[in-house]
Design a protein around this nucleic acid. Structure first.
Lengths: 107, 107
DNA sequence: ATATATTATCGTAATATTGCAATATTAAAT
DNA sequence: ATTTAATATTGCAATATTACGATAATATAT
């Protein structure tokens, strides 16, 4: 075996885990932070900015895209994309909600 | 090749990614949520609660322990532990801070 | 239409993760 | 000291992730 038993967990838990998995790599954290802090759209400076090979950056971007965090135009020369704000805020709320429930009486 | 190039990223990015990696599995999300919502300490009902084998739960707990989210007694019969509140709040702030910086002018 | 620049995809190697059976360790109770 | 119950560790198989070279696809400019 060795495959995640996703079926025994709730949809909510699986979704939060899936988002966390995208954030579970420093390159993707760096990419997300860089894009989210740009004034407008991104145009092909990520490879220089991050320091990984172009195919690797492309793959990381694809992972981020999969959870809906990017919008814009992706393919061809001069790609132009940015953070999907609605999704960004949605994920922010998801993490906030996860962290805001904790009981304080403890050993 | 095939190993993460952690050295090319900032400490902050690596640390957030490391925490996200712990959250990147539905079992660990479920475990964290369950423990954090308990009134007091946990005493050996996680295996029934989650539905994975005992060694697997033990390994997941160990991952959570590594990032400092658990405190209490871990070994032997009747283990007794709970969420480390300080660390929990620290991580909450880290995610909050990550998500709170985003520019709104976009394509 | 061709050349040029940019991003995507394929293939592959190295490593990491996930899960559990078997076994070991630990601590309390008898 | 033995037994018993609970957790940890080991070993291993299946799968997933990470990275990049080579190559393909895409789009703009000439």
């Amino acid at each position: 075996m060795g495959v995640s038993k996703t079926h025994i967990f709730s949809l909510q838990h699986n979704e939060l885990a899936q988002v966390a998995k995208v954030m579970a790599h420093p390159a993707r954290i760096a990419i997300l932070e860089y894009i989210s802090k740009q004034e407008g759209c991104i145009c092909n400076d990520l490879v220089d900015e991050i320091g990984l090979a172009q195919p690797t950056i492309s793959q990381h971007l694809n992972e981020i895209k999969k959870i809906g965090l990017l919008k814009g135009t992706y393919e061809g020369k001069n790609l132009c994309y940015c953070i999907n704000q609605e999704r960004w805020l949605e994920l922010q709320r998801a993490f906030q909600s996860f962290f805001s429930n904790i009981n304080l009486n403890c050993c």
